[in-house]
Design a binder for these strands. Structure first.
Lengths: 232, 232
DNA sequence: ACGCCCGGATTCATCGGAGGAATTCGTGCG
DNA sequence: CGCACGAATTCCTCCGATGAATCCGGGCGT
């Protein structure tokens, strides 16, 4: 076990033991290094690793703190590794996205707030206006698409689901997604799919919300490269 | 942007640009540091962070290599952050596990190999023998429980699902899970649930496999602490 | 010729120290 | 009382040196 691993394990223990909690400040580098029996260099490597993982947050001139440890924060590092995969590997990731967002849509049907419902409607109307223009602003439509999906995922009420979806369907992933979807009618179809999901949410119909979201994401998935459906 | 972030971004770019691929060796610390315009210390912090994320693998006396970049490898860091959450935060994680494993069970029904089916049966028989003893070996049963779920998840055929389930339902999480399940009959019930899933898989009945797995995991979920079902 | 041992070269791991940069907070002035 | 200034604190970056693990090729014996 390397010194750095000892640092990671040590900080982890300090958190699980309750010595450190969200928002708490760590001892200064010199003290913590001495306490863990490592040099400042090794300590910094471990702290940096935990920073990348979203566990710690260092601020120059201030100190090192434990983050909120929210799933959203902790899963953000996942986006990095997802984006590392090329276009060919996108399919299994999108399948996970589909399953999770479908579940979230079903849950959201029963618990979506009036405010979120209204916001989702506004997003859809904005998207409709974008599509009505002669020269469609594709970037703006992608923005609206992202916003709609985020609202639904959030209203599912499971922060882990929200964080995972956010990590998988991040910026890079979505751009890849739409790169292969510029055939005629793709955006209009997406718009109709979204509206169908919205109606199901407004009606509080969980089953309809599930089916609509699943169908929509299956549509998207078919445009991805890779084995269509293991046709071997 | 800190020097370390530049290192992470630089290596990421080298990978996405195709300059580096799985198994490839990175330049030695001195050269790479010079190329990225940072000191060896900063370089090491960045490389270490990528090592923790499962992207790089350093071997003393040999060199630094890009890993296979398999989802299983890349998601392993997720287990660390999942385990960081206490018992109270386990419920949303388990909900994700339930949804993903349910999907995997449905997929597995159509594509499980005879070998995997036989291995799963062996695991279940082993578990049954464990339960038949006067003094039940709980650790052995947990082991069999883990093995059964892993086989089903793997046979779902989606490596991302497998990796996520593995990360969420890791060792620490499972131990927490069973800590609150030592009431009489819990293990026997689990065994019956598993056998029902197995029969569905053997019959190639995807819907049955889904339902059985979902019901089993809902059972488990009810024993977790936290809001029963948002009864507000 | 073949296998084994050993020593040098290579590479990462760890350490210690020094100066710089950003933040915080108390002090003193207006 | 408000504000600017500066000292203290803390993390950031760099440099050089030593140790540890691995790899590779030469030399030796059989």
């Amino acid at each position: 076990m390397s010194r750095t691993d000892e640092v990671v394990a040590g900080v982890r223990r300090m958190i699980t033991d309750g010595e450190l909690g969200p928002g708490d400040r760590l001892p200064v580098e010199k003290d913590l290094a001495e306490r863990l029996g490592v040099s400042r260099g090794s300590l910094r490597e471990g702290v940096r690793a935990l920073t990348v993982l979203g566990v710690l947050d260092t601020r120059q001139g201030d100190g090192t703190y434990v983050t909120s440890l929210d799933p959203a924060r902790l899963m953000s590092s996942l986006q990095f590794v997802v984006d590392l995969h090329g276009d060919t590997g996108a399919r299994p990731f999108h399948a996970v996205r589909r399953v999770l967002e479908t579940e979230a849509a079903g849950l959201a049907a029963h618990r979506i707030t009036p405010e979120a419902l209204a916001e989702a409607r506004d997003v859809l109307e904005q998207a409709a206006r974008t599509l009505a223009q002669d020269d469609v602003d594709h970037a703006a439509f992608i923005e609206a698409d992202t916003a709609f999906h985020r609202i639904v995922a959030e209203q599912g009420g499971n922060p882990v689901v929200t964080a995972l979806v956010e990590a998988i369907a991040g910026r890079t992933f979505r751009e890849r997604l739409w790169r292969g979807r510029h055939e005629a009618g793709a955006e209009e179809r997406t718009q109709r799919d979204h509206e169908a999901v919205w109606r199901a949410l407004a009606a509080g119909d969980a089953e309809a919300a599930r089916v609509r979201m699943a169908a929509h994401l299956l549509d998207v998935e078919e445009t991805l490269p890779g084995p269509e459906a293991t046709e071997d």
